[in-house]
Structures are given as C-alpha cells and as structure tokens.
Simulated assay, not measured.
Amino acid sequence: MNPPILVVGGAGYIGSHMVKMLAQAQYPVTVLDNLCTGFADAARHGELVTGDLADTVLLERLFAEHSFAAVFHFAALSQVGESVQIPERYYRNNVANTLNLLDAMRRYGVDRFIFSSTAAIFGEPQYTPVDELHPTQPINPYGRSKRMVEEMLADLGQSYGLRSVCLRYFNAAGADPHGELGERHDPESHLIPLVLQAASGRRPQISVFGSDYPTPDGTCIRDYIHVWDLCSAHLLALEHLLQDGESIALNLGNGQGFSVQEVIDSARRVTGQEIRVQEQVRRPGDPAILVADSARARQFLGWQPKYADLDTIIAHAWAWEQQKGRRW
C-alpha cells in the first residue's frame, strides 16, 4: 500500500482535484483545510480535518497520529488585489503559517514537500515564454510571499535535508473531466468561469480589459493549464521525491497562449450561447503576453499535458458551471 499523504488546502479548487487523483492512485490522504475558501464536500476523497496552519497544537497532533511520507501545500491566499490592500494577511498566512507546517514536519522527520507556487514570483515578464532562469521580481505581496516560501524551502533543504518540488503555474483552468469537482470561488475572478457565468445567464456580460495590446487580436494572451494536468505534474513530483529525487523548481503551463478573445470565441462554440462583452480600459500591471516555458518539467518529470486544447478545457468547465447553476 502507498504511504499516507497530507494535503493542506485540499478542500480548495486545485487541492480537491489533487486529493481525488491521489486517492485514485491508492494513497491514503488526510486533508487539512480551514475552509475559508474551500468546501468540505470537495474533500470527499480524503479524511478532512478542519483547522488552520496557525494552530500549532493541531499540527503537532496530526503529525503525531500519522506517519506522513510527504506534504502537499495548496493553502495559500491568492488574490493579488487583496494582497496589496491587506499585505499582512498574506505574509501571516502564506509565510508564517507555512513555517509552522515546516517546523512540524522537521520535528517528525517528514522531509518531502510539494509546493504550489506561482508565476507571480516572476513579476513583469522580461521575455516570453517564461522559463526557470527568468529573474524573480514579484510586484505584489502575493508574489513576494510565494517567493519567500521558495527561499525558505531552499534554506531548510540546505540545513536540514528537506527535499521539495516547487511548481510555478500560470492560469489554472477547467474542471474534473468526470464533472465531480470544479471552481467555486466567491467572488470569482478567473476569466474562464466568468465567461461561462455569462453564457449560463448568471452574469449579464463579460468585461474585457483592453483591446489594444500588441497581440494578434488586441487582447491579452495567457497560458491556461487544465487543473487535472496540474495535478498530474504534482503526482509525478511526489513520485520523484519518494524515489529520493533532488529538490527542484519547475514552471508548468501548456506552453501556448490563448487570448481573451479566443477564450470568449471558444466558450461561444462550446456552449452555443451568445456571450455579451463589455470593453473596458486596460488594468494597470496586465502584461500583454504571459506564457510558460515548461520544457524542463516535461524533461525532468516526464510530464505531458493531456488536456491542452482550449475547447476541451472550456467544455469541462462548462459541464461544471451547468451543475453549479443547479446546485448553488
């Protein structure tokens, strides 16, 4: 039998998909989540413990009761705008609370850590596609908090032998191909679910911020990676660490970008709905193109995205949106 795994933030969007994939791979999973943005029913494939990484007594109990082989971390706050308005909340949750977790791991001899990082550590792209050699110059507290954790992991690896894989991804999208899980952010800020809410009638229209960028159709281009493909990379990272592999940081993306207009056009094809668009002025800090170079992840982990087609990503998200409209 495979060894037990702890997934913090396993009731959220990406974490819940990871828990399901781990369960399908026959790993016993414990989920720790404070449910501030997650949902208890999304963690159905693991044993849910409701609690916070700030609770060091709870962490002590969890590690005393389980012999975890590895820890997945999906428990960060991730709203860029909020991080600018309330930076201390991000440093407390994303940095200090992560250190609580790492302290507990060290006390109980757990030395494998898979970290959900972000392209936000790179800041404004100096070139695209963005590879791992790109300078890390985050421009907001969210990105800085994630970079701090990556730096902590490197230092703890040097001092105590902690082995980690940091996976920096771009735009997570889509939903469980079998329709069981999907995005449930409140409020929603991601483009694809917003477009699909407009298609389903839960939103009157979709706003497009800027149509005069130096791109083929004038709208921003982003790298959308299917959430199930993200999770498959995390599973490969776990297997790498279980085989005593070295620490590494990797970028994850499809390696191709889709514009805002292409997303809207795809959603119209997939849903058969006319989607109303309202053009707005550009938002400050939005780069024209942000695409990942994930060649290193493909080479190092043997990772290959399965759902790279935009229509497929949107079709899975649309199936979830239709369920969500009936349920919530």
Rank of each mutant, 00 (worst) to 15 (best):
G161K: 14
L162N: 13
L162Y: 08
R163I: 15
R163F: 10
R163W: 11
R163P: 13
R163D: 15
R163C: 15
R163Y: 07
S164H: 15
S164F: 15
V165E: 05
V165L: 14
C166V: 15
L167V: 15
L167D: 07
L167Y: 15
R168G: 03
Y169L: 14
Y169R: 13
Y169D: 10
F170V: 10
F170C: 05
F170K: 07
F170M: 10
N171Y: 12
N171R: 05
N171A: 14
G174M: 07
G174D: 05
G174Q: 08
A175R: 13
A175E: 09
A175H: 08
D176V: 07
P177L: 04
H178L: 12
G179D: 01
G179I: 05
E180I: 13
L181E: 05
G182P: 11
G182I: 09
R184N: 12
R184C: 12
H185M: 11
H185V: 04
H185T: 09
P187Y: 01
P187I: 08
P187W: 09
P187T: 03
P187K: 03
E188Y: 02
S189T: 15
H190Q: 11
H190T: 13
H190D: 10
L191I: 07
L191Q: 05
L191G: 01
I192D: 00
I192H: 10
I192C: 01
I192M: 04
P193A: 02
L194V: 00
L194Q: 12
L196F: 01
L196Q: 02
Q197G: 11
Q197E: 09
Q197Y: 03
Q197F: 00
A198R: 11
A199D: 00
A199N: 03
A199Q: 04
S200K: 02
S200R: 03
S200H: 00
G201A: 04
R202A: 14
R202S: 12
R203C: 01
R203D: 03
R203A: 06
R203E: 08
P204C: 14
P204H: 12
Q205R: 13
Q205L: 14
Q205V: 14
Q205Y: 15
I206Y: 05
I206H: 00
S207N: 14
S207K: 14
V208Q: 03
V208T: 04
V208R: 11
V208D: 03
V208A: 03
F209W: 12
F209Q: 06
G210S: 09
G210I: 11
G210W: 06
S211F: 10
D212G: 06
D212K: 14
D212Y: 08
P214Y: 10
P214L: 12
P214H: 05
P214S: 01
T215I: 07
T215A: 02
P216K: 01
D217L: 04
D217V: 03
G218E: 02
T219M: 01
T219G: 03
T219E: 00
T219R: 01
I221N: 00
I221W: 02
I221F: 00
I221H: 02
R222N: 09
